[in-house]
Design a protein around this nucleic acid. Structure first.
Lengths: 152, 152
DNA sequence: TCTGAAACATGCCAGGA
DNA sequence: TCCTGGCATGTTTCAGA
């Protein structure tokens, strides 16, 4: 799929702030409201824009303790992978989970309130899953960059 | 900061889909439009809702090759850290960067088109930064879970 | 794919319980 | 904190180029 300069600008602007109105975009782009409207609808229809979401402030909702958990399974039969994946998606604390190459099988990004809550999560939720070989937790010290915008 | 059940529901619904109108929310919550409107505005004013954004489909914009890069600096003097952090935020391919505990100093999440583009990124951008000790790249095989919603 | 206009829905504010 | 009502604004559709 290919985009012209106008589409790229629209996508940049909406990735930064999706509350911008069609009118606002039309002014920035020197186009009519309808022209912008139809481009945006097209991008939505084609699935280039997947969804619009509200991003919460992690501190304000008390989930600023971020942990990266590298995890290995005991075996790699397909049923083991599938079972683990089915279970892990159901854990609310797990914001992201990727099957990856290398020494570990999965990388998880976990949001909790503090170390105590993380301990609780590990003991009562994560390590109760079947076929978990080993885990290695890496704690976030500070967030250097965390954006949702993909520059086109 | 503490939230009642209504606030939590509003935050859940807007995290999933921020195009929901106040009217739509009011129906789901059995409240008047204005009551919902004022709660949402309060959550925005207090900074609980940080921002509203468009989420793009990585495949459709040709950035579905995801790499986690674990990175160590040669030294840990404050000026070295600061310099690295200032530079890394300017790299468009780096979507997230965290200063972390453990064997490595930083974990980066990188979006590119393919391996070739990743190689190009490493050679011409990342490893040209000063004070980089070592890097270790982990490639995403599949995305098991990737959500923005924080369950309250 | 664009412009301009008209119809419709929602956002947003006032006044009050 | 909630409600009802109303005006301003933006969204959406349509005709025409």
């Amino acid at each position: 799929m290919t985009f012209d300069a106008t589409d790229r600008k629209i996508l940049m602007l909406l990735q930064q702030d999706s509350t911008r109105t069609t009118k606002e975009l039309s002014l920035k782009l020197n186009l009519s409201v309808t022209a912008v409207y139809e481009r945006v609808k097209k991008l939505e229809r084609e699935g280039v824009v997947d969804r619009y979401v509200a991003v919460l402030n992690q501190k304000k909702v008390n989930r600023a303790f971020v942990v990266f958990c590298h995890l290995k399974l005991t075996q790699h039969a397909k049923e083991y992978l599938t079972h683990f994946e089915q279970e892990v998606v159901r854990l609310d604390e797990v914001i992201e989970c990727y099957h990856v190459s290398g020494d570990y099988d999965y990388i998880l990004k976990i949001f909790v309130a503090d170390m105590e809550e993380y301990r609780e999560f590990m003991v009562t939720k994560l390590t109760t899953l079947k076929h978990i070989g080993s885990t290695h937790s890496t704690f976030m010290i500070s967030e250097v960059k965390n954006t949702n915008v993909i520059t086109l």
